[in-house]
Write a protein that binds this DNA or RNA. Sequence first.
DNA 1: CTTGACCTTGACCCTGGGGGCAGGGTTTAG
DNA 2: CTAAACCCTGCCCCCAGGGTCAAGGTCAAG
Lengths: 122, 122
Amino acid sequence: MRISDLAAEAGVTVKAVRYYESQGLLKPRREANGYRTYDADDVHVVREVKALLSLGLTAEQTCPFIECLRAGNERADVCPASLTAYRTRIAEVDRRIAELTDLRARLTDLLTDAESWRTKQL
Amino acid sequence: MRISDLAAEAGVTVKAVRYYESQGLLKPRREANGYRTYDADDVHVVREVKALLSLGLTAEQTCPFIECLRAGNERADVCPASLTAYRTRIAEVDRRIAELTDLRARLTDLLTDAESWRTKQL
DNA sequence: CTTGACCTTGACCCTGGGGGCAGGGTTTAG
DNA sequence: CTAAACCCTGCCCCCAGGGTCAAGGTCAAG
């Protein structure tokens, strides 16, 4: 199958497929005319990458999952490295939520402060 | 004062000062040799921009605050537009926290699912 | 007057995950 | 034959700068 077929089946854009390749996640064969050719396994890979990116992993962080799939597993997340990647991402999210929660508190403090300052001036 | 003095007093890098200028937040005069010249007010502006960026506002979103300062107010956030910008940012943060909370739930679901799948296989 | 240290300038490439466009080659249907 | 629909590579854009560079200015000591 060609790139647009793969993209359509996996639910991503052609551009995204080429980007995944540039990140080393796909290695399509080339036809004589230079066109990329993919097989059915690549559809699963691209779907997996899409799902993981939507979970906020970087393209690089999807590598263990892809390797897990390529190793013949039916699921990309049953390998130890994948579980580690999940836990790492959860920790990142927790850290980010904590940061944002703190940020929100600082913002509301500033807002109420500025509001009361205005009231005082009136 | 010159750019490195401004940067040092405001606690940012020279590079950042030049970036703020490229975003229209500063308009320094130039000496005969082309060097940028700043006055004391610019220190307050840069400090304000730094503080707002650390709160996650974009350079563009800092404009109302800078205008408020330039208008002669001692605080950048006493103008109505600044209060609106604060509220907008708080809403953004809330949305982001909600997204991340949902994301975290999806990640933990995936993790426990993958873990139990592994256990089942053993 | 010259050397050297330090400062300034603009200009370039880099980040992550692509979007959008240009300009060209290929293939397929009418 | 031609037009549409593909495909290719390559460039610029996002955001807030960081890193590095070459070129030139400034200021003190020697």
